[in-house]
Design a protein around this nucleic acid. Structure first.
Length: 695
DNA sequence: ATCGGAACTTAGTATTCAGCCG
DNA sequence: CGGCTGAATACTAAGTTCCGAT
């Protein structure tokens, strides 16, 4: 059933039950804080869900507006800006598909299923699966069931701590001090990071020291009272030497380690899920260490404790062989929950969240989900125009909440912002997404650099990556933003009547299965498709076409703000490449000279041998020209990629079928676009998509 | 019906690997 | 043939959305 899901699965999406949290941010501008529970709306939605999709019915009529009561008490004076009938409606800035008309709602199904079936058969033949494949296409699990059979070997635990050799010393206040094993282990975590700037940060040091002291004996505790008196340098040197020694190991030793890893992988790296042997993504338990959050994380430096079998919950099927815990230990629990996909879980001690061991992206269960994701995005394509018209209408709504929702959705759509859940203050780095934007994160410019109504965004998003962008917006949006910001402090929420739950509930009404993140997927994929159309020059050779592909990919990465730290060696490697290009140019000049003289030679001699020489010189020139071209393309590509990470969008946002189709269309080997891992992840798409695939 | 936690996707960085060049 | 480099992979944090207990 691998690839046959969509309709059914889509229709089985559950009712939405998002909570409607009230935001609290102390004191300031209280009048903006009162939330309105739109009971009416809630009710109506309920009804809709009732008749809805389950059982394959049509989704509810596109949208019902809820402008009616209750009015907001601080409803702004109608200054006419939103009621004005002559208000223009400029098209959105981002290019969009105009050919929606001839878009056919390809329902995948039969054809694809056949193909998938074929592929699966082939796969079976080469597969290392020991099991017979029963007719997998037919298996269609009842709602929520993820598998019928699941067997695995359990996790691999981090290697136990090996105490330092006697001669490696720790000094406190200038004096040698022998630490207890537990305290020593934690000290080594710090020592290993000594070169990292983390260890200079106040919060990191404070958190570390606090947690370290918890591991100390009472004696150590009373002696070691100040981190700045601790000297880890000797330990640090020891570890550096160890790393060095590891590098210097002989081939045989390295080989041995490699084999050991392979053995581990073979033994623990796979599981059996419903007649298939599947690769596990992360079968190794995270080793203990110091927590390194991203950005300005309040918990950085805290001790991530060692996970023991007693912390571990095993999930597998009842009729499987339950993995035995390590000798002398017990699992926390063994359960048989086939409504989830994880194999192993444990609770982590920094945030108290649960961590999981799950399957590799190449697995059926992940691939299917991935496919579904893109199908949802394609369904959005069909109704995105309606939705856009709707939110533009809503900018004029009498209800504050509706307006905020509409403006937020506009940002999510136009700028591919993330939804932006509220976060518990002090638990994580202070980052935001769309719904959690604060007044301080945007600046309004009625005019800027010759453009009207420019919004300047500057905030930290996921992973504390900065989002900085100046965007011209439509007048109504601009006016609305001014309104939202009235009488607020910088640290107040911009959309004080909105949260992701409200937004997603609304989206759910607009389209079954629609959530905020679908817009990111949709806009990323549609941009790729459109950019590929635009940028691919049929006359280009393969490297040039690939450059075009990368540029299209890059357009998406920029849209999604996927950044990376410029590689440390970037400048250097750029220079290397340049000198390579220079060398190649010289080589080309040489080759041309040689060709010339060979030609002259042939003219004089007129024998077969010299003719052949000319031919071979010609070929040499051509080859070098090609090589040069390739290098130059590479240089351009790399320069443009300095701070942009392509891999995230490639892996998570771009419908792989677009890329596969493009490759087929232009005769580009798929290996040029996707490496081995990516090909495994996108196997379903590689098999399914034809040249004419349309997202 | 709400709430908070569970489940799962998305993310950037650190480490390892493989192959190329001198 | 070893050291270096860029690519691939490993790792795990940080998001979003779902969902079940109360």
């Amino acid at each position: 059933m691998l690839l046959s899901c969509s309709e059914h699965k889509d229709s089985s999406e559950k009712k939405h039950k998002d909570k409607e949290k009230t935001k609290h941010k102390d004191g300031s501008s209280e009048k903006h804080k009162d939330k309105h529970k739109d009971k009416d709306k809630e009710k109506r939605k309920e009804e809709k869900v009732g008749v809805s999709y389950r059982g394959g019915k049509m989704k509810p009529p596109f949208f019902v507006s809820f402008c009616s009561p209750p009015r907001i008490k601080d409803e702004p004076d109608d200054d006419g800006f939103y009621a004005s009938p002559k208000e223009d409606s400029k098209p959105l800035k981002r290019p969009r598909e105009d050919d929606d008309a001839d878009y056919k709602p390809k329902k995948i199904k039969t054809e694809d299923i056949k193909k998938a079936k074929k592929r699966k058969q082939e796969e079976e033949e080469t597969d290392n699966s020991v099991l017979n494949c029963i007719e997998w296409e037919e298996e269609r699990y009842p709602e929520g069931i993820k598998w019928k059979f699941l067997e695995h070997k359990g996790p691999v635990f981090a290697p136990p701590y090996e105490p330092l050799p006697e001669n490696v010393k720790f000094y406190y206040d200038g004096k040698v001090m022998k630490l207890s094993t537990k305290a020593e282990e934690v000290a080594t975590f710090f020592a290993k990071m000594l070169d990292h700037e983390y260890t200079t940060k106040e919060i990191f040091r404070k958190n570390f020291f606090k947690d370290w002291r918890k591991e100390m004996t009472s004696e150590e505790k009373s002696t070691i009272t100040s981190l700045s008196k601790c000297d880890f340098t000797h330990m640090s040197q020891y570890f550096k030497a160890q790393t060095e020694a590891r590098k210097q190991m002989s081939k045989e030793e390295k080989q041995k380690i490699k084999e050991e890893n392979e053995r581990l992988l073979k033994e623990y790296g796979y599981c059996v899920m419903d007649n298939h042997k599947e690769r596990i993504a992360n079968f190794k338990i995270e080793p203990p260490g110091l927590f390194r959050g991203r950005g300005n994380h309040p918990k950085m430096g805290m001790l991530k404790r060692r996970i023991m079998p007693e912390d571990i919950i095993i999930n597998c099927s009842k009729d499987s062989k339950v993995p035995p815990p390590p000798p002398g230990h017990k699992w926390k629990e063994v359960r048989h929950d086939n409504k989830v996909t994880w194999l192993v879980s444990w609770t982590e001690n920094i945030q108290g969240s649960i961590k999981y061991i799950m399957l590799n992206p190449s697995s059926r269960i992940k691939g299917e989900k991935d496919w579904q994701k893109y199908e949802t995005a394609r369904r959005l394509k069909k109704c995105v125009d309606k939705i856009r018209n709707q939110y533009r209408e809503d900018w004029k709504s009498k209800e504050m909440k509706v307006r905020q929702r509409a403006v937020a959705l506009y940002f999510i759509d136009k700028l591919a912002l993330r939804a932006g859940n509220e976060k518990e203050e002090g638990e994580t780095a202070d980052t935001v997404g769309c719904c959690s934007l604060r007044v301080e994160h945007i600046k309004l410019h009625p005019e800027l650099d010759g453009q009207e109504y420019v919004v300047e965004f500057d905030f930290l998003g996921k992973d504390s990556i900065r989002y900085y962008n100046k965007v011209p917006v439509e007048k109504r949006v601009f006016k609305n933003l001014q309104l939202f910001m009235e009488n607020k402090q910088p640290e107040d929420d911009l959309f004080d009547r909105l949260n992701t739950s409200i937004l997603n509930k609304h989206l759910q009404d607009l389209m079954e299965g629609l959530t905020a993140k679908v817009f990111r997927t949709y806009n990323a994929s549609i941009t790729l498709q459109q950019q590929l159309k635009e940028l691919t020059n049929p006359d280009d050779n393969i490297p040039a076409k690939i450059l075009s592909y990368n540029r299209a990919n890059r357009a998406v990465a920029i849209l999604c703000n996927h950044q990376r730290a410029p590689p440390k060696t970037f400048e250097k490697s750029m220079m290397n490449l340049q000198s390579k290009i220079d060398a190649k140019k010289e080589q080309l000049a040489d080759a041309r000279r040689e060709l010339k003289s060979a030609k002259a030679d042939a003219k004089v001699r007129r024998d077969e041998k010299s003719k052949k020489a000319v031919e071979s010189k010609k070929k040499a020139v051509q080859r070098i020209e090609e090589q040069l071209m390739k290098l130059e393309v590479q240089a351009t590509d790399r320069e443009e990629n300095k701070q942009i990470a392509l891999s995230t969008s490639k892996l998570n946002y771009l419908d792989p079928r677009i890329s596969v189709a493009w490759c087929k269309k232009w005769g580009i080997p798929i290996e040029k676009i996707y490496n081995k891992t990516q090909r495994e992840k996108f196997a379903w798409a590689i098999d399914m998509a034809e040249e004419d695939y349309e997202f």
